[in-house]
Simulated assay, not measured.
Amino acid sequence: MALTDPAARRQDHRHTTADDDVSRRLLESAAALSYDPSTEIDWDSPLPEGHYGLNPEWSTLYGTRLWDEMTEHQRVTLTRHEVCSIMNTGIWFEMILQQMVLRDQYLKNPVSAEFRFALTEIADECRHSIMFARACEKMGVPAYRPNKLIAQAGRAYKSLAKGELAYGGILVAEEVLDVMQRDWMRGENVLDIVRGTSRIHVVEESRHMKFARQEIRERLRYASPARRRASATGIAIGAYVIVTSMVHPGVYKAAGLDVGRALAEVKGNEHRKAMMRNSSRHLMAFLAETGLLTSRSAAVYRRVHML
């Protein structure tokens, strides 16, 4: 008896030699340029007291009156908690990502380059999650987790999302973080531990983003307009959940700030909105190119200032 049903066989038929060529090149890149965070990062070096967790310009409060009122110690503390909150969101989503990719590759040809790179990506994500967890432990920051409603939404998403919806969610999380980390890895006043983890993540996630883009193009090759519209909305909702979960409200309390006032200033922070739009520019261009930026999805992206 065949192990795959007719729908799976049709999906395999749509996978072309050109698709596999992309995965093969990514495998070659992974073989030539991958990192082991346990040896690449100096985990024993003490943390300089005055260094930020991320570039101040990426702080949610930068550009507000509250930021101007804060002491330098509060700014340093806030940025360290913010970067660890973002790292913890990254860990949470990497757990979702791994399950979606594994489910997508279930019963696919194990000798194909696509299958092998998918498992390579999962191995990368395991190392990244451990790396982020270790960095937060080093900074002495607690594990900030999404609230119960968001956690349950993530549980549903990882169980139900497939095809371009799954890879679209993956791409959203990776693209936004990539732009941020490219700045952090160059920040002279940013902790070395953050610069180092950012450098590793940027290099290895660039392959993951290329893989996600290729998978999205492949899945949409024969997609109907109705399917594109539905997927566009689903990806936008996923983006909304990810972006609104990146910085936990607890970071403001940790910096000795009034949480209510801090959240109000973040909500009206035009500098932060501009930074979010800038970090989403390439993502929005790709979604538009593939028919995944509709009027409905654009309205969702505007709510979180990605457009």
Rank of each mutant, 00 (worst) to 15 (best):
I91A: 09
N189Y: 11
Q214A: 14
P142S: 08
A156Y: 12
Q105D: 10
A8G: 10
L149N: 12
M180I: 11
S45D: 10
L27E: 02
V141E: 10
P110N: 00
I216H: 03
R199L: 12
A156V: 11
H305D: 14
R221I: 02
P110E: 01
A254H: 05
N269E: 00
H15M: 11
M284F: 08
V111M: 14
A264F: 00
A143Q: 15
S295E: 15
L26S: 00
A8L: 05
I86H: 05
H305Q: 10
R127A: 12
S159E: 13
A298N: 09
Y301F: 14
Y35N: 06
D68T: 03
R277A: 13
Y222F: 14
Q105S: 14
V179W: 12
A264P: 02
A226N: 08
E205D: 02
C84H: 05
R25E: 14
R217E: 08
S45G: 06
L78N: 03
F286D: 02
A153D: 08
V251S: 06
L149P: 06
I122S: 06
E289C: 04
E114G: 09
L292H: 02
R24F: 13
P56G: 03
E57V: 05
E40I: 03
R182P: 05
S297K: 00
W92M: 13
A255Y: 03
R10F: 12
E121P: 04
V83R: 13
E270D: 09
R227S: 12
P46Q: 00
V194K: 03
V243F: 07
I122C: 12
E114V: 12
M139C: 05
S231L: 09
H13Y: 11
F93L: 15
V83Y: 14
I242V: 15
I150T: 13
L102S: 10
V304L: 01
L97N: 09
P56S: 06
A236D: 07
L220H: 07
R186E: 07
G196P: 03
R221Q: 11
G53L: 01
W184I: 13
A226E: 14
L26T: 02
D192W: 07
M1D: 11
V141Y: 04
S38L: 11
L47D: 04
T233Q: 14
P146M: 03
P6I: 02
M131N: 07
M284C: 03
W184S: 12
S198F: 01
K162C: 09
W43Q: 00
V241F: 12
A30V: 06
M275G: 05
S129L: 06
V176F: 14
V101P: 05
W67K: 00
M131W: 02
G163S: 05
F115Q: 05
R127I: 03
G260K: 08
A113V: 07
A113F: 09
R277W: 07
A230M: 13
Y35S: 08
K253Y: 07
A151C: 04
P56F: 03
L61G: 01
M131R: 08
G250K: 11
A212H: 04
V243K: 11
E188R: 15
C126M: 11
L102I: 11
R80F: 04
D5S: 10
E174M: 01
T16P: 07
F115D: 08
L33F: 09
E270F: 03
D20K: 04
A254I: 06
S295Y: 12
S38C: 05
R155F: 14
I96F: 09
E94V: 00
R103H: 11
D42R: 05
E204V: 02
R272K: 12
R213Q: 15
P142L: 10
L160F: 13
